[in-house]
Structures are given as C-alpha cells and as structure tokens.
Design a protein around this nucleic acid. Structure first.
Lengths: 109, 109
DNA sequence: CGAACACTTAACCAAACGGTTGACGAAATT
DNA sequence: AATTTCGTCAACCGTTTGGTTAAGTGTTCG
C-alpha cells in the first residue's frame, strides 16, 4: 500500500535527512563522515541512511570496509512532478514558458 | 524546532492528504464533501484537514454551519524551491531557461 | 422549540518514528 | 594474531501518527 511518493515525502520530512541530502550534493560520502556533523549516534544516522535508501533518494555501495553514499536526485523527480501539478511555481508565466518550449525545443514536445 | 518544510513534507507524505489536495485543485469544498469519497470517519478527515491547515497547504473559512476548504498552493513553493536545489528537474535545459528569462522578463530578475 | 446537520474534540489504541546503548561481523592496520 | 575502524543489528524507550468511537458545539430548518 505504501506508494513511492509516501516514501519520498516522508523521507524529506525530517531535517536531519534533508541536511544529509544537501551534504551529498557536494560529493559522495562515507557513512562515518555523514554522521560526523550531527549530535547523534552513528546508529541513528545509519537508520536515516537506510530510510533514504528505501526511498531511492540515495544509493549505498560498500567498497572495502567503507560504505559510500551517493545522491540519487532522480528520485525527487516524481515528487517534483506531483507538485508541479499544483502550478504557480513558475517564477514567471506558464504560457510564455510553453511558447518558449515550442520555439526552442519543438522536438521534445 | 519544527520548521515549515517539516510540516509541508510530512503533510504530503500521506496519500489521503495528497488526494484531498488534488480534489481541492478542482474547487473549494466543504469538509463533509471532502470526506465523502474516503472509507474513513469524518473525524479522521477533520484531523487531516487540520494538519494540512497547520502546514499552510489549505485554509478553512466557516460560513454558516459549513466550513469551506481552499487550496493554498503557495505553501508548496518553498518545498518546490528546496527540491529545485537538487537540479535536473527542468524538463529541458536550465541555461536555456535562464536565457529565456533574461530575454522575456528582464524586469523580474 | 426541537430536530437534523456540519463539524470538532476527547479518549483511546496499535503501529511507526527517532533516538539510545550494546553486541556483533567484516575489513584494514600494526 | 591482535587491535582498531566501519558499520549494522537487536532490544528498548518515549513520542507521534493515523485511525476509531462517543460526546459536544454551533447553525439551520420545520
């Protein structure tokens, strides 16, 4: 019953997890390094990373004894598309943007 | 400690609440009408609406004995902006879009 | 006035969440 | 071989969440 959007949005609902994602924007990181700035146990961070992985927002790959965490921003795409459905996020004007699309990228439509 | 983004994302994490928002996209609705399609009590829906209101995603105005629910899509904006920070959601090309903005709406930049 | 309608609130419940500590396994170092 | 490092797992704990039912508050209508 648990849809992908449920996983993604509830993953994003926690400030620690959003901070982790922001950190991973810079570069891939080991679990220990992800945990370092936070005032909580490594086990807690490990759980957060597990949740982010289940949501598809990051991937984890073990090389040697260190497990690398990698941002998977594509997982945000579906959530972003859902929100776009509510419109009005365009900084300017949707009609003008559509005209722009037709003019500049007719092959993508 | 609870930031606005926490409220918005956790509000969006529930499929019932997302469905309610989608319904309100059509038109403003009374609480009873919002509850009608769902297989749960009116009290449960009332709680969901309270949460959506606290998150700023809807507003409620009582006229007579019926309380009208209105979508407030602006509350999604900050969340949308946060996600945009992870890039790659632009359907086309961000650079081209920025050039478009400068050309079409120089006064907004 | 009294009854029906539109909601909200309170009390309760099971399950999930966010954190802890402690034990553990697997890889690297010495 | 022994030890340290990296990370997960299990058990536990208090709080929050998503639902229930039942009672209560207004508001409208007959």
């Amino acid at each position: 019953m648990t849809e992908p959007l449920d996983l993604v949005f509830s993953a994003l609902a926690d400030p620690t997890r959003r901070a982790i994602l922001t950190m991973l924007l810079e570069d891939d990181m080991a679990v220990t390094d992800v945990a370092e700035p936070f005032a909580m146990s490594l086990a807690a961070i490990s759980k957060h990373l597990g949740l982010l992985t289940r949501a598809g927002l990051i991937s984890q790959e073990k090389r040697g004894r260190v497990k690398w965490c990698k941002l998977e921003p594509d997982a945000l795409k579906q959530a972003s598309v859902w929100m776009q459905g509510f419109g009005q996020f365009d900084p300017v004007n949707l009609d003008a943007f559509e005209r722009f699309l037709e003019r500049e990228f007719p092959e993508k439509l």
